[in-house]
Amino acid sequence: MRDGRLRVVIIEAQVLFAKALSAIFADDSDFEVISDHRAPEAVTLAAARPHVIVIDLDGQPTDVAATLGICSQAAPDGRICVLSMHLSSEMMQRCLSNGAEAYIVKDISPPELLRAIKTVADGQSYVDPRVAGGLLRRRSLNAGKPDIMELSAREAEVLKLIAEGLANKQISARLHLSEKTVKNHVSRIFSKLNISARTQAAVHAIRAGIV
């Protein structure tokens, strides 16, 4: 249970939008915007000790796992709320799999945003109802089967290269990673997809349309 106001950090690449978000939170005395940043920075996030991190993914690099990973590692107690313009259940799944507690599409109204953030701060999750349906449908179709969307962006990248027939050493050179890191990614991919061979991984990648 928290005492006092909700400490919010805003991560927004567009200065005008950051100011717009700050103004929305400033209108509600339950919130205190600690700072706003153009990109996630581990040191400032750790120092801010936010209850909530509001991050607009649209202006951030495409590696969702890495971007959200910085937030969750720097501020492990901070609840991550993703803002996005994409009404996409795949993108939402990717965010939730990588530590986000909320997926909020940016065409909601300011009062709806505040309600969503309070819900998340109270320990629940929030997803835009328009994309939640797609997620539930896919979950129900895939019931009991491993879901490729559980993979992080980096793991999906590694899977794609496995499907192209590359060995770990070649993947490590291609992605500028150590061979050990690639091995770790491969182990996690196998575990998440419940498989034991690279050919099975390739089949998953082809079925999912990532190659």
Binding site: A20, I24, K106
Partner: peptide, 12 residues
């Protein structure tokens, strides 16, 4: 606009 969250600020 396409981002309703931005409108109050822009109006201001």
């Amino acid at each position: 606009h396409g981002q309703r969250l931005m409108v109050p600020f822009l109006k201001d």
